[in-house]
Each structure stands twice: as structure tokens, then as C-alpha cells.
Design a protein around this nucleic acid. Structure first.
Length: 702
RNA sequence: GGGCGAUUAGCUCAGCUGGUUAGAGCGUCACAUUGACAUUGUGAAGGUCACAGGUUCAAGUCCUGUAUCGCCCACCA
């Protein structure tokens, strides 16, 4: 008779940490093949949510499985400074305190934000412990660690040297509220219904949704095949504008759709992405008429100082007075660009920014996936990735915020030359001027996180980098295919000449039982730590993994979590029962029945099946099968059938065989369940007779 | 405009390479239960696997098309 020791999750985690086995260097049995996962560093600006818990459950399952399989399993934890995201969170905090980021000196703001993120990191790290993450804390990294900043800046300098980073004055996506530019990925298009104004331009008329930008017109465009306007192509038209005489050239451009509006487009290069391109092609100047705060500027006469919306109304009234409005289509449906964070209308602006030239990087990124060097789970994300990379645009990596890695570029006060250098330059190489000021902008946070797999391992010189890179698995949400995964692949290949990982596992977005996305405003969020407190971390992990097909949105409800809490209870009770009939010092030799041997053999076959499932990324299947096997085969059938043999059995050798069979099966089953339910299985393991290791994770799968 | 995914029990979802009576959780019904069981066990009801064609000895599983829902991408002035 052996008693089942009861252990709390915190005690178990402490046991694990003390064992040192999270660090693969300490694992028994040396000289093994590594298995590496770099944890997607959670944003250090808040608490973990269920989506994080999902990723952690999946990654930990893989890590624990391969550790049992005898691999040198390394899981590197980290935290992301999360540039703009964190800045937004922090701004809200400042707002509540009645402060404003624009009034706080840069260094002071930085210091406050740094402290803020370090606080969050501590919370997050404890939350990861609560969830049972078996990551190597001795290797934890932050995206603003000094070595990370240094290498990130070095990448910038190197890319610049190779002509892959350039400075360009182009039309950028500008958010007037946040006062920063964005890459195209941070722009969200929303459908709206707005009036479409048909406005007379001398003999022609154009349809526009933005009449207030009329002062920035520098041309008109028609389709070269449009018969109606052949006579105008190449000529100037003149007419009376709201601020005096206007003269605009008419150009022919394929991009103009003859069937839209009147077939004539006003070209306003400074305020529209398409027009900017058209302007470049036809050599039309860009004239800004809106400032960075979304107000009309000095080129707009009486409209100066008005907000865009006011100006639009005023301009329409005046155009009507001038008899230039032909008609207004009130039900024009179109999409407008907005800030993904605050919903403000994006006001395109011409600004000098740093760009990464993407085509050469994308070519390598495409090859790696098309050739199968990097595999996506599920496969269909490869198509999405390929499509995006084949149509990629240059990447604006300048952000006008404080929170991030400074761009290693200095501008000469005398001649304006931009000097890119790892160290502060003493003189301008062009004019020899000595006053150089660093670019106030910081890098897009994805520029550094895009290098995370090799930077987190201490590239270029560390032993870890040499041992553990390329990594085996990148596990993340499918919403980051473009933002993060594609950039990691491209930048990883560029900087290290190797793919950063061999496989990418995409999980879906967690939904509630009504298939709604979880959000604070809907009030349907499940706090992973809260439910872990109530039902146990294992129950939460199982609820997140069982039946959750990679790439699809999992539905998680408290009912489901409760179901797996019951399962954990079942495991404990079954173990308790089995141990009741074990006599550790018994000298009786068990006499196994045919059925005993069959059961043991079948379990072996079953284990092989589970192994195959996990190796092929089918955690949802493996976990479900284990649940079913443990409960409905092991507990309901095998244990039940052995009860008569265990109780009041005069045949001691048969009794011993029944007990021994159950014990062997239990030992195997908790090992197999360990990747999914580490706490419960460890609790059982600690009570097993003749356990060989201090904790279950150091056991061997076979 | 393009692409992707989903459609299987009342609800939420599994079902890998096509192969015996299609599974799980929650819910429903009946019976049992001081049992290892924060209940659990036994059994039951409940599915034309969206629809229409096709391939095959065999299709929820492969192919074509249709419908509905959802998501992503795109320079809709």
C-alpha cells in the first residue's frame, strides 16, 4: 500500500526549477541532439491572456515531449518591448494621470516606460510559471537588452551598406493622433459610405470623395484608351479655382478606370497613395495642403487651420457657389484607411523615412518555403505567405515615437547628410561638419523582433547560437504571418544565411462558446490565470489543446475547462487506487496472465501512435486519444477488470501480476500525458515506487 | 476584385495517408452507486457528415460545381 502524496502546483513548479532541468545543459544523458523553441516574447505591457496560454500550452507540450524523447530541449523565454503597442498602452496610463507624452522629455519618458515594462515582465514571468512553462529562465531575454539593441543596430548598418536600407521621402501612412508613421500592415481599411462629389475642372469634370484636397491637385489623369478624352492628353487645362487661376496638365495613365465616375481623376500626389505613384510616373509635383495634425495648411487660403472634415464641408459650399458641383452621389461605398489602434483616419503625408528594400530579401524568403526548408503547419498558410511575399512593398521602419531602438543614423546640421554608423560619427564625411544629430526616430518593433530567433540565442558568437540554431519550431498565432513570421524568415536568412526555424506551427484566435472573439469590451474574456486558479493549470491547458486543430480558431469555455479538471481528478484517483495494491517490498513473483501481457503490448502500440501524432503536430489528436484511453480503457475497463484479482484473491502471484500490470501502465500513461498535463502527472510520479529521476521530465519516453 | 478557411449529434468541435456499426466535451433520458472518483459507472436517445454531380470495389475523407458563414489581401479616385 502506497499513499498518493498531494502536491500543490506551486510546489511542483519549485521542484522543477530546483532540478535545473529546464536548462538542457543540466539534463542527464549528454551528447544529444538539440530541440529548440524560441518563445514568442509576450508584450511587456500587460497581463497574459488566453491566447498566450494557448501558445504556451502548445510550446510546452512539444518541449516536454522532446525532452522525454531524449533531446536537449531548450525553450528560450523572453519579453518584447513592443514599441508602438506599449507606447499606446502607456499613453492611456498617462492620460488617466492627466499627463501627455508630448510634454514629457524623451529621456524621462523612456525611463518611466522602461520601469513599466520591467514590472510587467515580472508579472508575466510568474504567470508563465503558473501555467507550468518549462522554459529555461537562465536564458531569458528582453528585446531591449543591450546586446539585442547593439545587434539590431548593426543589422541596420549592414543592410544600409548593402543598399538594402535607404532613406526616401515618400508618402507615408500617418496617424494624426499618434503622430507617427506606419507600415502598410498597421493600416486598417474600413468600409464607409460617403458622398462622391462631381466637380467641374474647366471643360472636364472629376469625381472625388475628398474635395478639400483640391488645393493639392497637380494634374488630371485619364485612361489612355478612353476615347472621350484623347484630345486633352498632354495638354493643360485652365480654369478659375477657389483661390484663383488654376492650370493642370492632363496625363494618360493605365490605372484610371474609365467606368468610374467621369473617367477623369484629379491627381493629388501629397494626399493619396495612388496619386503619389501617378505623380512619380508623370513627373507631377507633390503639394501638401494638410499638416501633420490633420489641419489645412498655409496653401489653402481661408481654409487654413480647419480640420479636414470642416474644410471638406466649407469647400463643397464654396464650390457649389462657384457653380462647380455637377452632382453629388450620396451613397458612395468605399474603404478608407484608418489607424489600426485608434481608428483615426490615416492622413497620408510626405516624410523622409528609412525603408527596407524588400524584393531581394523576399526572394530568399520565398525560396526557403517553396523548397520545403521551412514548413508551415498547416500548409495552407504557405500560400498566404507566398502571395504576400510575391507582392511585397518596401518596408517603412521609421517610427516617430520614443519607445524603441534608436535608428543608428545621424544628420549633419550643416549639409543635411545622413550618416549611418554603429558609433556616433565625429565628422560628416561629406562636408566635414562637426554637428551631427541622431535621427529622433526609432525602429519599427518588428524590425528587431524579426531578428529574434538568432538574437535571443546570442548571435553571432555565442555557443548557444552555434548549438541551438536553426531552431526547430516557431509557434505563434496566424495573425502574425506577415508581421512577424515572414520578417523573421527574411531577416534570419539574410543575417545568418540559415532559416531561423524548420517548422512554423500556427494556432488560431481563441473564441468564446458563441464563437465571439474575446475582448474586454465584450466582457467575454477568460483570464487564464483565474481559471487555472480554480480548475488547475492542467485543465486549462487541456481545454486549449484537445480538439484544437492548428490554424483554426479554438472555442474555449469554462465547461470545457471543467471537463478536464474532472479528468485530472480521474487521473489522481486511478493512481490512488493502483498504488493501494502495490507492496513495494513484496517478494512475490507476479504471474502475468495473457490479458495482462496483451494490455501491456497494446499500450506500447498506442504509445507509438501518440508519438507519431505529436511528431506530426497533431497535439489535438494525441491529447484526445490519451484522454479517451486513460479514462475509458485504462480506468473503466482494465482497472475494473482487475478488481476481483486485487481484492480477496488467494492466488498471490496472480494478485501481484494484476497490481504490477496496472502500475506499469500507469507509469507509461503519466509519462505520455506529461506534455499535456505536467502538474498532475508529476504529482503522481512523485508517489511512484522506484522512480528513477527526481522529476518526471528527466525520464525517458521509451 | 482576388485568395483562404469552415459547413459532421441540441450546442462547441475532432475525424491523420479514402477501408469494419462516424467520435469527444457540454446538454438530455433511464438505472446504479458509502465506490479509487471535488461524483462516478452502466446503458439509451440524437447525425440523408451543407447541396449537386463525378472518381473508386469502397468517400465525411479525393475531384468539379453551387450555396451559406467567416477571415485575409488589394493603389474602389
Amino acid at each position: 500500500m502506497i499513499e498518493l502524496k498531494s502536491l500543490k502546483e506551486d510546489e511542483i513548479y519549485e521542484l522543477w526549477e530546483k532540478s535545473g532541468y529546464f536548462n538542457p545543459d543540466n539534463l542527464p544523458r549528454k551528447n544529444r541532439k538539440p530541440y529548440t523553441i524560441i518563445m514568442p516574447p509576450p508584450n511587456a505591457n500587460g497581463a497574459l491572456h488566453l491566447g498566450h496560454a494557448l501558445g504556451i500550452a502548445i510550446e510546452d507540450a512539444f518541449i516536454r515531449f522532446y525532452r522525454l524523447m531524449g533531446r536537449k530541449a531548450l525553450w528560450v523565454p523572453g519579453a518584447d518591448h513592443a514599441g508602438f503597442e506599449t507606447q499606446v498602452v502607456f499613453e492611456k496610463k498617462l492620460e488617466k494621470e492627466g499627463r501627455n507624452r508630448f510634454d514629457i522629455p524623451r529621456e524621462e519618458l523612456w525611463r518611466e516606460m522602461y520601469a513599466f515594462t520591467q514590472e510587467n515582465r515580472k508579472t508575466m514571468e510568474n504567470q508563465l510559471r503558473k501555467l507550468g512553462a518549462s522554459c529555461d529562465w537562465s536564458r531569458k531575454k528582453f528585446t531591449l537588452d543591450e546586446d539585442i539593441i547593439r545587434e539590431t543596430q548593426r543589422s541596420f548598418v549592414e543592410l544600409h551598406k548593402q543598399g538594402l536600407i535607404y532613406r526616401g521621402s515618400r508618402l507615408v501612412n500617418w496617424c494624426p493622433k499618434h503622430q507617427t508613421a506606419f507600415s502598410e500592415l498597421e493600416v486598417k481599411y474600413v468600409e464607409r459610405v460617403d458622398p462622391l462629389y462631381y466637380v467641374k475642372y474647366g471643360p472636364l469634370s472629376v469625381a472625388t470623395a475628398r474635395p478639400e484636397t483640391i488645393f493639392g491637385d497637380t494634374g488630371l489623369a485619364v485612361n489612355p484608351k478612353d476615347k472621350r478624352y484623347q484630345d486633352y492628353i498632354g495638354k493643360d487645362i485652365e480654369f478659375d479655382g477657389l483661390l484663383g487661376k488654376v492650370k493642370l496638365p492632363v496625363v494618360a495613365d493605365e490605372s484610371v478606370d474609365p467606368d468610374f465616375g467621369t473617367g477623369v481623376v484629379k491627381v493629388t500626389p501629397a494626399h493619396d497613395m495612388t496619386d503619389f505613384e501617378t505623380g512619380l510616373k508623370h513627373d507631377l509635383p507633390a503639394k501638401s495642403v494638410i499638416d501633420r495634425y490633420g489641419k489645412m495648411n498655409e496653401f489653402t487660403g481661408p481654409y487654413k487651420g480647419m480640420k479636414v472634415a470642416e474644410a471638406r464641408a466649407a469647400v463643397v459650399v464654396d464650390l457649389e457657389k462657384a457653380g462647380r458641383i455637377e452632382k453629388i452621389d450620396e451613397n458612395y461605398r468605399h474603404s478608407v484607411a484608418t489607424c489600426y489602434k485608434c481608428g483615426s483616419l490615416i492622413e497620408p503625408a510626405i516624410l523622409p523615412q528609412w525603408y527596407v528594400k524588400m524584393k531581394p530579401l523576399a526572394a530568399k524568403g520565398l525560396e526557403a518555403v517553396k523548397s520545403g526548408k521551412i514548413k508551415f503547419v498547416t500548409e495552407h498558410f504557405e500560400k498566404i505567405y507566398i502571395h504576400w511575399l510575391e507582392n511585397i512593398h518596401d518596408w517603412n521602419i521609421s517610427r516617430q515615437i520614443v519607445w524603441g531602438i534608436r535608428i543608428p543614423a545621424w544628420f549633419c546640421a550643416k549639409c543635411g547628410e545622413a550618416v549611418v554608423s554603429e558609433k556616433i560619427p565625429e565628422r560628416c564625411p561629406k562636408c566635414n561638419g562637426s554637428i551631427l544629430e541622431q535621427d529622433p526616430d526609432v525602429l519599427d518593433t518588428w524590425f528587431s523582433s524579426g531578428q529574434w530567433p538568432f538574437l535571443a540565442l546570442g548571435f553571432p558568437k555565442s555557443r548557444d547560437f552555434k548549438t541551438y540554431y536553426p531552431t526547430d519550431l516557431m509557434e505563434t498565432g496566424y495573425d502574425l504571418v506577415f508581421f512577424w513570421v515572414s520578417r523573421m524568415i527574411m531577416l534570419g536568412l539574410w543575417r545568418t544565411k540559415k532559416p531561423p526555424f524548420r517548422n512554423v506551427y500556427f494556432h488560431g484566435m481563441v473564441r468564446d462558446k458563441d464563437r465571439q472573439k474575446m475582448s474586454k469590451s465584450k466582457g467575454n474574456v477568460i483570464d487564464p490565470l483565474g481559471v487555472a486558479e480554480i480548475y488547475g493549470a492542467d485543465a486549462v491547458r487541456m481545454a486549449l489543446i484537445v480538439g484544437n486543430t492548428p490554424g483554426l480558431d479554438p472555442v474555449v469555455s469554462e465547461d470545457k475547462i471543467r471537463a478536464y479538471r474532472n479528468f485530472a481528478t480521474k487521473i489522481r484517483n486511478a493512481a490512488k487506487f493502483v498504488l493501494t495494491y502495490i507492496e513495494p517490498d513484496s517478494k512475490i513473483k507476479p504471474r502475468f496472465s495473457k490479458k495482462d501481457l496483451d494490455n501491456l503490448r497494446e499500450l506500447k502500440i498506442f504509445k507509438k501512435e501518440i508519438e507519431r501524432d505529436i511528431e506530426n503536430f497533431r497535439l489535438h489528436e494525441a491529447s484526445n486519444k490519451l484522454y479517451h484511453y486513460f479514462w475509458h480503457v485504462f480506468a473503466d475497463k482494465i482497472i475494473e477488470e482487475s478488481k476481483p484479482r486485487l481484492k480477496e484473491n488467494k492466488d498471490a502471484a496472480d494478485k501481484a501480476a494484476a497490481g504490477e500490470t496496472l502500475l506499469r501502465m500507469l507509469r507509461e500513461l503519466i509519462k505520455m500525458l506529461h506534455p499535456f498535463m505536467p502538474f498532475t502527472t508529476e504529482e503522481v510520479y512523485q508517489s511512484l515506487p522506484d522512480k528513477k529521476q527526481t522529476c518526471l521530465m528527466a525520464e525517458s519516453w521509451n
